[in-house]
Design a protein around this nucleic acid. Structure first.
Lengths: 224, 224
DNA sequence: TCGCAAAGTTAGCTTCTCTAACATATGTTA
DNA sequence: TAACATATGTTAGAGAAGCTAACTTTGCGA
């Protein structure tokens, strides 16, 4: 199995933003940065027990505060989860940007690397990934979450345009981008399920990703 | 927008399996088929409010019974949800089989029709679809749910083999099938999100599906 | 027809979310 | 530096949910 590439370092998130000196003298009463602490606790719980196994109370126990404390930082449970998803998405995007920084512009290798990192996040942090795409956010209509998908898509479209030598984001670019994203998105879900119950032999992600990119980018897209 | 093809008729599920005569004389005390009634109530609530908005109490109110009644039919809330998902998956599979019954064997149109119906279900019953693939079932390890994906995949593989003229399910068939499924699966999620927040122009599902099928089936799959 | 099993009910325990009222630390300003 | 305002904790408790125990009603088979 070659498709688990890197253990995303999701540590060092708490560590409070102590720009002030103040090393250990945090009072016992005040947490320091409870908001970040609760987000980290939420993230851990969602990964360990799934979205349905998570409770605010558990997060409080993990963070070592009373069950009323979160409501000084979040309106309600939903907002706490949204904040956790946003934090994860920020890391997701950072990982993706980082993955292509050494690859020359216009190379299809950039698209392949982006896809790999997209899948990588989904496999390493399935809880957060599924919170974002599993329907939870549908009813909330949080603008920040809504716009995330669009931004990421726009980013992919730019890469697609460069790869096929288009100067603008036209319909052809959009269609190809959407096809690529669909494929990578589907792979993200199915590979995780595959890990749970193996449903068919070996599967080399590197090859398949390169293959699909070539297919979708190379072929002139005839309509009808 | 052409990608909403048919309103899946998810009605007529309650109607009790009254194989006995007994038309209206159901006592007020006994429900008749509370198990089916609760599954239908759960389905409605999940679609209307999402997986997180669902509660056993609400389902009881919808079905018109006390909050303790479900526990005569289901071990707990999880089992109630699993039963609802299984019922949905049964309809999902029936729809897919129905969609190809008039298409000759070996035709790529069969794969296209299967993909269309797969996406169709995801768009018409997003709540159930996301319950199945949104991570909820991961921790439960319900054999029936686990095997569903494998069975569906096996079914697709047979169609793929026929289309490319293979007599057995070899690695090449598996790879192509997995690519097709990934793509359709990803489309299912993204098209639903797209409906919520349109992120780019028009998109003709018919054409794209046929296109992808042709691409994946036609090309000889070179490794490396 | 009797009695048992199936399938309901009410009552109540525990846990969860969230609010109200109160307590304590921080840091700004006179 | 004292004092006040604000941020960020606390405890107590209301209301709802999940689930169990004990009881009641109904259908069915010996």
């Amino acid at each position: 199995m070659t498709w688990i590439m890197k253990k995303t370092a999701a540590d060092g998130i708490i560590k409070a933003k102590s720009t002030e000196p103040d090393p250990i003298s945090k009072s016992a009463y005040h947490h320091g940065d409870l908001r970040a602490g609760l987000i980290e606790a939420t993230r851990r719980l969602v990964e360990e027990r799934g979205q349905h196994g998570f409770s605010v109370s558990d997060a409080c126990r993990l963070a070592g505060v009373s069950t009323a404390a979160p409501y000084k930082h979040f309106k309600d449970k939903d907002e706490m989860i949204v904040a956790t998803v946003l934090e994860g998405m920020a890391r997701h995007r950072a990982n993706m940007l980082d993955s292509i920084k050494d690859i020359p512009e216009g190379s299809p290798m950039r698209l392949k690397a982006l896809g790999k990192e997209y899948i990588n996040f989904a496999l390493n942090e399935p809880g957060i990934f599924r919170l974002k795409f599993g329907g939870f956010t549908d009813k909330l209509e949080d603008d920040r979450l809504q716009s995330y998908g669009e931004q990421t898509f726009g980013f992919v479209l730019q890469e697609v345009a460069k790869c096929i030598g288009e100067t603008e984001i036209n319909q052809d670019v959009r269609d190809r981008g959407f096809m690529l994203w669909s494929f990578v998105h589907g792979l993200s879900f199915l590979l995780y399920d595959k890990r749970l119950s193996d449903m068919g032999g070996d599967f080399d992600l590197e090859i398949v990703l390169a293959d699909i990119a070539k297919l979708v980018l190379a072929r002139k897209y005839e309509r009808g």
